[in-house]
Write a protein that binds this DNA or RNA. Structure first.
Length: 941
RNA sequence: GCCCGGGUGGUGGAAUCAGGCAGACACAAGGGACUUAAAAUCCCUCGGAGGCAACUUCGUGCGGGUUCAAUUCCCGCCUCGGGCACCA
């Protein structure tokens, strides 16, 4: 290896080959002290990009640190294969989606390979291999690859069925109606932002409308849908669209008039909806009247062109005092109807809707943008600060924010209203059909709302190690908020069959809650030491819960493994898991696992984004493929980048130029270490002691940081501060080969968890034969601490800084520089002052008096009082570290004199060093009086 | 709407948990050294204003408050982002 030519690609490859050949990554039980860490397993349905490697890297660094500090480390990994993503990917390949095909070709996928990927199982197999070979091994991760597993394997399915049997036993599986997106052609669909199933409307929300039953004279229901049921008290009229043909239907035993679209939608949500033949054009309804439920007032039906048949029921109730749309429509209708104000709210008068319209200058129903703004304004204000007034019967005096659901539930209970679910925007299936919301009357849920389970989970979470701490505060709130989760789904997706309903499949969040436990078993499954049929409920009961007796010797072996490794010490995942995966992970463990097997810690990391905080994506150009990036930057540079560029708890912006800087830094460290060997050996006691001491300080800080999983601080100390220390030492003329050798050896070991390839390569240059990855991590050695020399170098630095500052301000080109350290009497007073400041009883007057008791001081009278007055405000601001520094006895003159050569070099000018106590002084400019401890006076000639 | 997290130099971001020198560490920029040149490397400057001696002064989204002391704590705003349940 050439000194200036660090071929990282070859180095990385070499060490990965060596490591994995030696099975260094396989978890072993040796030290009777274990650490179990894993990352939330990724879905396997596409290539990953550089952003994904961030969390994986954190995990590997922590695992490597732990194994070097005396732990048996279990760091397994697996693949989340259940759900629809792989099915979606296979579908794309099948329909020859151009982007997908291009992507596969770019990544070296052959035509035969592409053909195979029309099968979701092949998609999973293909990407599982890519992740392992091209990503994880390529990054040098010490994952125990003998335990790889996925969530659709036969063994895993047995495990999940056991889990659901347990949930059922504990009465945590319940049935109740559920509403889910549904395509009349394709069945259940997922509405999500990635739009796997749908071609439009991926970010739609499901809105919960209240349908109020207004009645016509003949008893027919005119259903109006609203999100504000409490405004029923302010209804003055109805709006129907005069040009729309309304349909009728028998809903339960009532006849409803509403839009055709509404009947279609309701037929999926209600049990008994029977369309009738009778239709009626909107204009024929106009002029009729209907009865308002609850208040029983009679109100007219008017023409409103904005009533959209595709939204909710197609019929709108009018509350002109509180809805800007209604107000403007009423004005335009020229009807003589008075608005009814039912909400008192600060900042508005008798008609909030009118006032908001006037404020924005709205004149017509067609000004939808402004009308939306006005609606928003009125609604927000009323929701937060509004109170129902005397016109609202028994609800009078109650805040809007508290009453909404009460009114709704009361009306429903008295059959005056119903509910209707509706998307906030149109959702179109891939097959072009409109997606509807379908009721599933007896959906199975996991009962996360269960009060004892929630409470126990909150109590338990409070005892966990959670990074960042903010998330720990958030968790109880999330656990409270977390409601029942629909756990199964009918349709074409992968997963475990639900044991209590044939053909239904357990959904992918619910099958990923206890899975780290399965890593203990997957090792034996992969080695075929246990057969799938033997993995019965009794087996899992025995291994996990200690119930029953072993049917086989292997059961005992597995149980002993489980008892050794479990629980998980750190589960690491991205911030997207905060509100979904981690809560169910905790709750399922609390529900099913014994207390001593519950998770110990969670580490949440944020994302890698593109410039401008956008989520990284291929289309926006930020998604550098991992394999190419590894070649461009080097794996160690990327690992260091992830650790150092920002705290784990902020989003970082991917910036190729910055990554290149880290690459250069690695190469620079390589060169720097290479140069050391060429130095001519030499000793300088002060300086050598300083380097030794400094190294120990760094080690202490690094260990503290790693223990707190503060990876950023650890990496900063290792790659920046230690390098700075070494450079300072060399610049100062340090050349103690034995010491340098010790320093470099320690440095290499310190680097190992973060840049392991570089470290291994360094290690052999030090004549070592074993893996540095197996070395013990350095420990703090207090014997090497030399406070005197630390303070000495601090003093030296300060003198140089001050001198340069003076030269800059005065623009003097120096011929000679004189440095005067402070007299002994000043040092004495200073220490005394510091001591009393530390004891919190610092007082200028008493200090002067006490000092002057000493006859030697008395002769200096004036000077003493001036000095004390001057240092007083300064001393008050000192931190503990600052104060400690002044208490260390140091011969300032001697330390500076020892460094005279360096001072002369650094300041490019001859330097003379005096103590103010010296008999023979050269002080032409009378600068000496400025000298204070650790702050010598300086005179520039 | 509900829950949560942010707002600090030209930039990414430290310090916020526990009030105590704001801007660590880096990037970019400018100046200098070295070099035939470039790259790399090294040195210096780098929030604003002022300053010819070891400084002064203003400054952490806005408005108040507590305190000897507030980026940090409290109250009220503005604003950006995330999550919200069948995507994982």
């Amino acid at each position: 290896m050439e000194e200036n030519n660090y071929d990282y690609v070859a180095v990385e490859q070499k060490w990965q080959d060596n490591w994995f050949e030696a099975n260094i990554n396989v978890a072993r039980r040796e030290k009777n002290k274990k650490f179990f860490i894993h990352f939330a397993y990724p879905g396997v349905s596409g290539y990953l990009h550089v952003g994904h490697m961030r969390g994986f890297t954190y995990c590997d660094v922590i695992a490597r640190y732990k194994r070097m500090t005396g732990y048996d480390v279990l760091f397994p990994a697996g693949f989340h294969a259940s759900g629809i993503p792989s099915v979606g990917f296979a579908k794309k390949v099948e329909r020859q989606d151009p982007d997908t095909i291009r992507l596969l070709k770019q990544n070296g996928c052959t035509p035969e390979c592409i053909k195979r990927l029309t099968d979701p199982i092949e998609v999973i197999n293909y990407f599982s291999k890519v992740y392992v070979d091209d990503y994880w091994k390529r990054f040098g991760f010490f994952i125990d690859y003998t335990r790889l597993m996925n969530t659709i394997s036969d063994g895993y399915k047995k495990f999940i069925q056991w889990q659901f049997h347990k949930l059922h036993d504990k009465k945590l599986l319940i049935q109740k109606p559920h509403y889910a997106p549904y395509c009349p052609n394709c069945g259940p669909v997922a509405v999500d932002k990635s739009e796997t199933d749908v071609s439009q409307g991926g970010s739609a929300e499901i809105l919960d409308f209240t349908v109020l039953k207004f009645t016509l004279n003949d008893g027919t229901i005119l259903p109006a849908a609203t999100l504000r049921p409490e405004t029923i008290f302010g209804v003055t009229n109805m709006w129907v669209n005069p040009t729309v043909e309304y349909h009728t239907a028998l809903v339960n035993s009532e006849t409803w008039i509403c839009s055709k679209e509404c009947i279609q939608k309701l037929s999926y949500q209600y049990d008994h909806v029977k369309p009738l033949d009778k239709t009626i054009i909107g204009k024929d309804l106009i002029g009729k009247t209907c009865i308002v439920p609850e208040t029983n007032r009679e109100v007219p039906i008017l023409a409103g062109v904005f009533a959209d048949p595709s939204v909710a029921t197609g019929i709108v109730m009018s509350v002109p005092a509180h809805a800007p749309y209604d107000w403007i429509a009423l004005v335009e209708s020229k009807e003589n109807i008075e608005a009814i104000k039912i909400i008192d709210v600060k900042g508005f008068g008798n008609n909030p809707a009118k006032e908001a319209c006037d404020q924005l200058g709205i004149k017509s129903q067609t000004e939808t943008e402004k009308l939306n703004e006005a609606t928003d304004l009125v609604y927000k204000k009323e929701f937060h600060t509004g109170v129902l007034n005397g016109k609202c019967g028994k609800y009078a005096g109650i805040k809007i924010s508290e009453i909404k659901d009460t009114v709704k539930n009361d009306l429903i209970q008295r059959n005056l209203a119903a509910t209707m679910k509706e998307f906030s925007e149109p959702v179109i299936c891939r097959c072009k059909e409109n997606v509807v919301i379908k009721q599933i009357p007896d959906q199975w849920f996991i009962k996360y709302s269960d009060a004892p389970l929630t409470q126990e989970s909150k109590d338990y979470a409070a005892t966990m190690n959670i990074y960042p701490p903010e998330y720990k505060d958030e968790l109880p709130k999330i656990l409270d908020w977390f409601g029942d989760r629909a756990a199964i789904r009918l349709g074409s997706w992968l997963g475990t069959e639900f044991p209590y309903k044939k053909d239904w499949i357990i959904e992918p969040i619910s099958d990923s809650t206890l899975y780290p436990a399965y890593y203990v078993i997957s090792s034996y499954v992969n080695q075929k030491k246990i057969a799938i049929p033997d993995m019965t409920d009794a087996f899992f009961d025995y291994v996990f819960l200690g119930i029953g007796s072993p049917k086989d010797k292997i059961w005992q072996t597995i149980k002993s493994d489980f008892d050794y490794w479990y629980p998980v010490d750190i589960n690491l995942g991205g911030k997207e898991h905060k509100t979904v995966h981690f809560p169910v992970y905790i709750m399922n463990h609390v529900a099913i696992m014994p207390e001593q097997k519950r998770p110990q810690g969670i580490f949440v990391h944020w994302w890698v984004t593109q410039k401008g905080k956008e989520k990284i994506s291929k289309s926006k150009g930020g998604a550098e493929p991992i394999v190419e990036a590894a070649v461009t930057y080097g794996v160690d540079a990327m690992r260091l980048y992830y650790l150092h560029i920002g705290s784990p708890f902020v989003d970082i912006e991917w910036d190729p130029e910055t990554v290149l800087k880290y690459k250069n830094r690695i190469i620079n460290i390589w060169r720097l270490v290479g140069q050391i060997a060429l130095l001519k050996d030499g000793k300088q006691e002060n300086l050598d002691n300083w380097l030794k001491s400094s190294l120990q300080r760094r080690i202490k800080k690094i260990l503290t940081a790693f223990e707190a999983l503060d990876l950023r601080v650890a990496s900063n100390e290792i790659y920046f501060e230690l390098q700075k220390d070494l450079q300072w030492y060399l610049k100062r003329g340090g050349a103690n080969q034995k010491l340098l050798h010790h320093f470099v050896r320690s440095w290499i070991v310190l680097m190992t968890p973060i840049t392991p390839h570089l470290a291994e390569e360094f290690w052999i240059t030090q004549g070592q034969k074993q893996f540095v990855s197996n070395e013990p991590y350095p420990e703090f050695n207090s014997k090497d601490i030399s406070e005197k020399d630390e303070v000495g170098e601090y003093l030296l630095n300060r003198v140089i800084d001050d001198t340069i500052e003076i030269m800059n301000v005065t623009k003097i080109a120096p011929k000679k520089i004189c440095i005067y350290t402070s007299p002994a009497w000043k040092q004495k007073i200073f220490r005394k002052a510091i001591a009393s400041a530390a004891g919190n009883n610092f007082n200028v007057g008493s200090l002067i008096k006490e000092t002057l008791v000493d006859p030697a001081m008395k002769s200096l009278g004036q000077q003493v009082s001036q000095f004390v007055a001057k240092i007083a405000p300064e001393i008050k601001t000192y931190s503990e570290i600052d104060r400690a520094r002044f208490m260390i006895p140091l011969d300032e003159k001697k330390h500076l004199s020892d460094a005279k050569t360096y001072l002369t070099d650094a300041l490019h000018c001859p330097v003379e060093i005096y103590s103010a106590d010296d008999a023979d002084l050269n002080d032409p400019a009378k600068k000496i009086k400025f000298a204070t401890p650790l702050r010598p006076a300086i005179y520039i000639e």
